[in-house]
Design a protein around this nucleic acid. Structure first.
Lengths: 352, 352
DNA sequence: ACGCTGTGGGAACGCGCTTTCCAGCAGCTA
DNA sequence: TAGCTGCTGGAAAGCGCGTTCCCACAGCGT
C-alpha cells in the first residue's frame, strides 16, 4: 500500500519523501518541490512557510538520486588522482575540493594507484554517476593505446554532458592545467650547472609516465646544451615514493659513486635519497653530493638539509582546474600554463 | 518523440539508455537488464552475447542515479575528514578508500576544515545521496550542543539504512575505531620523565577538539602522578599545522625559556616547533630541548633530528573503519581500540 | 497423447522528484 | 460589469531502471 495521499501524520517508517512533507503541509508535491528547491516559480509565503516547517519537522532531505534522475544532472564532481596518500595529489585535491565546496558540490575522489586501467574505469563510473564534471590529475601515461582508450572514455563522458579538466601534460582536447615540467627540469639542470656540477646522477620515476619523460627531457636537454651528458646507467628509476628514492639512491651509488649531484624527479624520492646518503652511504648533503627535487611538497622545507627543489603551486593547480571545470567556455579547450619556480635551499652547493 | 521501441540504429544523441541497447540487441529491456546486472534469472547464452555486444558497441554505462532509485540503494560510501591536505587524514582516507575500492565502491570525500557545522551538513548531504555508509574521521568536538546535533544527523542517516563508522574518540552508538590518545599522551610523558625532564612545555591543538583533550589529559595525568606539573601558561595552543607549531613555539619560548622538553600534540606542530627552535630561537634539538610529537606521519622520520613521536597506524585505522562499515553486525556497535606506539628517534634525549 | 513442470521473454508498475500544462482566481481596464 | 491579463496551486507525465507478474513454449512423466 503506497503511503501517498494519506494526510495521516506519517507512522510508517522508511525514508521521508517529498510526498510526506507535502501531505503534512497540506499541499501538493509540486508545491513542496518548488519551495524546497528554489524553483523559478514563486510560492505564496504562507504555504511556503508551512512546507518548510514540515520539512524541518520530518528531517526531510531530498533523495539525490531521484533528483538527479528527474533533472538529469547532479551536483557531484569527480576527481581522479594517483593516490591521495601522496602530498602532491593531496595538495591538488585539497585545492580542487575547496573550490567545489564553494560551489556546493560534493566530490567523488578516486585513487588509481597509477594503474591506467583503473583510470579508464573510473572515468566510466563517473559517467555512470552522471557527474557534473571530472578533473583528472596526475601524469598521463605514454602508452598510446591506453591513451586512445582514455581519450575515448573522456569523449563519451563529455558527450553525456560532463565537463572535463586535466592537470597533466598531455594533449587532449579538454581544458588543461599544464605544469611546465620540461622547463622545470631545465631549471634544475641550470642550477646544477651553475654550481659547477658535471658528474650528475638522476633518480627517475616510474616508466611510462609522461611527467617523468618531460622532467627528464628538460633536464637532459639543458645539460646537453652545456655539453654535459648523463650516462644511461646513471639514471635509476624509482617509484616516486620516499622508500623508492632510498633504494634507488643505493643503486645509483653502487653504479656511480663519483656523482657530485643528484636530480630526483620528485620530492619524496629526493628525501629518500638524502636519507640513504646519510644512513647507509655515509655521504653528507650537500658537502659530498648535492640533491635537488621537484614539486616542493610541504615537508621539503623541514628535512635536513632543507631540500632545494623546483616548486609547483600544487594547491593552486587543483583550484584552477576546478574553476575551469565550473566556468565552462564555448571557445574550445583552454590551457593554463603553470610556471615552475626554482627554490634554492640547503641541499645543493657548488662543487668544491 | 521518445526513442523507445524503434529498432532503428540509434541516431538521436543524448546518453545511451538501457532501452537503446535492448533495441539494438533485439530484446526487451528486462532481458537486457538481466544480463547486464547478473540477475538471478538466467538468460540464454546467445541472447546474452548479443546484449553484451550491443552494450559494448554503444559504450553503454548504466545510469547510476536511476539504478539507485530503482534499487533504493547505491554503491557509494561517504568519508568525512577535517582536511585531506593533512598527512594524518590523507593516510586514513587512503586506507579507507583502498578497502572501498576493493568492494567496488566509489567514495565521496568531504573536507570539513574543522568546522562542526560543515560536518553536520555533510552528513545530511550524504544522507541525501543515499550513501551506503559513511566513515567520519577526525577528532570530535567537545561542545555538547554540536555533538547532540551531529548524533541526531547520524541517527537519521542510520535510520535511512546508512551504515556509520567513526574514527574518533567519542561515545556515539556506532561502530568505532578508537585510537588510544589518552594512553598515547601518557606514553609521551613517561618517556620524558624517564629522560629526566621536569620543566616541560606543551604545544596543544585547537580548543574544543576531543583528541586534543585526551592527549593532553593523558600526558598531564602521567606527569602529575610523578609529581610534575605543567603550568597553564606553558601550554600554548597551536592549530595543528606546521606553521602553527612554529608560531606557538616562539610564544612558548617567550613565556618559558627554561623548558627542557616540549610535547607537541601532533607531528606537524612538532616539526614546526623544531624549525622555530633552529631558525629563530637558536636552540638545538635535542641537546638544548627535546621535542616529541604525536601520530608518526610519514615525514616524521625525515626531519632532522628525526622526530620522536607516538605512532598511530593511520592507514590501518582507515582500513579497519571501512571494514566495520562494510561488514555490519547486528550485535550493536563495535569498538576497535588502536594502540599507540612510542617511536623513539633523535629529537629527544636525557636532560644533562 | 495429454497434462504438468520448468524456463525464457515481455509488459507494466513503481522508485522520488521535476516540470510542463491547465484550471481557477484576483485585479485590472474599458 | 464584462473581458483580460497575470499569478498561484494542482494534476500528470515523464526521467531510466529494476522487478515483479504473466504468458509462451519445450521437455517430461504416466
Amino acid at each position: 500500500m503506497p503511503a501517498s495521499k494519506s494526510r495521516a501524520p506519517r507512522v510508517e517508517s522508511g525514508p521521508v519523501t517529498l510526498q510526506h512533507v507535502a501531505d503534512t503541509a497540506g499541499v501538493s508535491r509540486a508545491t513542496a518541490s518548488r519551495v524546497l528547491n528554489g524553483s523559478s516559480r514563486i510560492v505564496g509565503s504562507e504555504l511556503a512557510e508551512r512546507v518548510m516547517r514540515a520539512a524541518r519537522d520530518l528531517r526531510y532531505v531530498s533523495n539525490a538520486p531521484a533528483q538527479a534522475l528527474a533533472r538529469s544532472r547532479t551536483t557531484v564532481v569527480g576527481m581522479i588522482v594517483h593516490s591521495v596518500d601522496d602530498p602532491y595529489f593531496a595538495a591538488i585535491a585539497a585545492g580542487a575540493m575547496r573550490v567545489a565546496a564553494e560551489h556546493d558540490l560534493l566530490t567523488m575522489l578516486a585513487n588509481t594507484f597509477r594503474d591506467p586501467e583503473r583510470e579508464i574505469d573510473y572515468v566510466a563510473r563517473l559517467r555512470a554517476h552522471r557527474a557534473l564534471g571530472l578533473v583528472l590529475a596526475g601524469s598521463g601515461f605514454t602508452d598510446p593505446e591506453q591513451n586512445a582508450r582514455l581519450a575515448e572514455q573522456l569523449s563519451d563522458f563529455a558527450a553525456t554532458g560532463g565537463r572535463v579538466a586535466l592537470v597533466r601534460h598531455q594533449s587532449l582536447p579538454f581544458d588543461t592545467v599544464l605544469p611546465e615540467n620540461r622547463r622545470g627540469g631545465a631549471q634544475a639542470a641550470e642550477l646544477l650547472l651553475a654550481l659547477g656540477h658535471r658528474r650528475i646522477g638522476i633518480l627517475s620515476g616510474p616508466n611510462g609516465l609522461s611527467t617523468v619523460e618531460h622532467r627528464l627531457a628538460g633536464f637532459r636537454d639543458a645539460l646537453h646544451a652545456a655539453g654535459v651528458e648523463v650516462p644511461d646507467d646513471a639514471i635509476v628509476s624509482a617509484d616516486f615514493t620516499r622508500d623508492g628514492g632510498y633504494v634507488a639512491m643505493l643503486e645509483l651509488e653502487a653504479r656511480h659513486p663519483d656523482r657530485t649531484a643528484v636530480f630526483a624527479l620528485n620530492d619524496p624520492t629526493a628525501i629518500g635519497a638524502i636519507a640513504a646518503l646519510r644512513e647507509e652511504i655515509g655521504k653528507s648533503v650537500p658537502q659530498d653530493v648535492s640533491v635537488i627535487g621537484f614539486d616542493d611538497v610541504p615537508s621539503a622545507q623541514d628535512v635536513t638539509p632543507a631540500l632545494t627543489t623546483v616548486r609547483l603551486p600544487l594547491e593552486e593547480m587543483g583550484e584552477r582546474a576546478m574553476r575551469l571545470l565550473l566556468e565552462p567556455s564555448d571557445r574550445g579547450p583552454r590551457t593554463i600554463r603553470i610556471k615552475a619556480d626554482l627554490v634554492v635551499r640547503q641541499s645543493t652547493t657548488s662543487v668544491t
